[in-house]
Design a binder for these strands. Structure first.
Lengths: 200, 200
DNA sequence: AATTAGTTGTACTGATCGGTACAGTGAGCC
DNA sequence: GGCTCACTGTACCGATCAGTACAACTAATT
């Protein structure tokens, strides 16, 4: 049987419940640490549903990666309209707020996956693409600043965006294992200072 | 039976072979993706040896974490004698060289683990401690620069060391998923520039 | 009411998981 | 030579893994 897209509201609800449960569990226990059975128990779905909507566990993980990107971007909405230095500050604040609220671990769900997915030929490109999408929003925002004359004309928005992403990921990794947001806070502060070095 | 430290040369060889095989496999496939059986097949040891030297898989992973730290520090030997700006440049070069040689993936073995180990109460503190050890060598080196009058007296070596670690980890994570060392190279360049902002 | 496609429940499979049991073998020490 | 203890080989265990088989149900369409 091939994997199916849900074509009725009922089916969509079931599929979403499975992905939601998987996303939550994998955020905490990792991919390999999250069995299909656990996902189904948590979502209340049965095995036939899971294999009706996904060809195998790998495809479920692919859906989870998409879900993570949605969550991440949804948690930093200002990234879609970045156009000023004040917006950039708001952006770092929104990033911090996510993990201040957090009941769960301080961590980037994509970053958590990155290590485990490793060189899985199907999944690694999806994680890569998710990061690139995230970064491209940032780059677009920085380009907007440049167009507004708030960023030096000879600065490279794409390069600056990558530098910011690096800081975010490094900061989150350290903050994760230290259970201490300070590491992320400092990293964001330094990144912002670095960007301001290109202020017009 | 309790876990035993090897007390004969033969035992030590066996134990090392197990840890080596585990370290190699887990670097590529992750912890959960590396079964005890695979480790034993790769090391040529039998199950009784494994459970003679380690109480369980978790303890094996603990030994692997120690091994990773040894490997990491061994690959950047200048970190033990850091005392000048030239040494810092050498340090970034040594960091890059490890992954230029690499047959395996571009990645920090500890960083790979960080996501998966997550909040495992036994293992997470070990990863944390390994990072702190690594960072403390860096901090000591920066302190040496300060004592030599090459770093501003009001700079905080510990804080600068953490900033550098953040860049290294973020750069490695991005470089990993992109299969492109450039991300690490840029991150190190920016980090070094940041540090030089505190040059005396 | 009959048809049809989308969806679901239950029961199962073979493989692999981490871990154990236990009978040995190796080498140093008296 | 014989004792001791660290070490090793092999066979096994119950649990859990991802994935399958197949019949039954739901709901919209006709």
């Amino acid at each position: 049987m091939e994997a199916q897209a849900a074509s009725t509201p009922r089916g969509k609800r079931t599929r979403d419940a499975i992905v939601d449960a998987a996303a939550g569990l994998m955020y905490v226990d990792g991919v390999a640490g999250t069995s299909v059975d656990k996902v189904l128990a948590a979502s209340g779905a049965g095995k036939s549903q899971m294999y009706h909507y996904f060809k195998n566990k790998e495809q479920l993980v692919a859906a989870v990666i998409d879900r993570y990107l949605e969550q991440i971007l949804g948690n930093q909405p200002v990234i879609f309209t970045l156009a000023s230095w004040a917006d950039l500050e708001t952006w770092t604040e929104q990033l911090l707020d996510v993990h201040r609220r957090a009941g769960g671990p301080i961590a980037c769900p994509l970053g958590n996956l990155a290590g485990e997915v490793g060189d899985n030929p199907k999944l690694a490109p999806l994680v890569d693409q998710a990061y690139r999408t995230w970064e491209s929003h940032l780059a677009r925002g920085l380009k907007a600043l440049q167009d507004n004359g708030e960023l030096a004309a000879d600065a490279d928005p794409a390069r600056l965006a990558q530098a910011a992403m690096t800081s975010v990921q490094g900061g989150l990794l350290l903050a994760h294992i230290r259970h201490d947001l300070t590491a992320l806070q400092d990293a964001l502060g330094i990144a912002l200072a670095y960007l301001r070095g290109f202020k017009r």
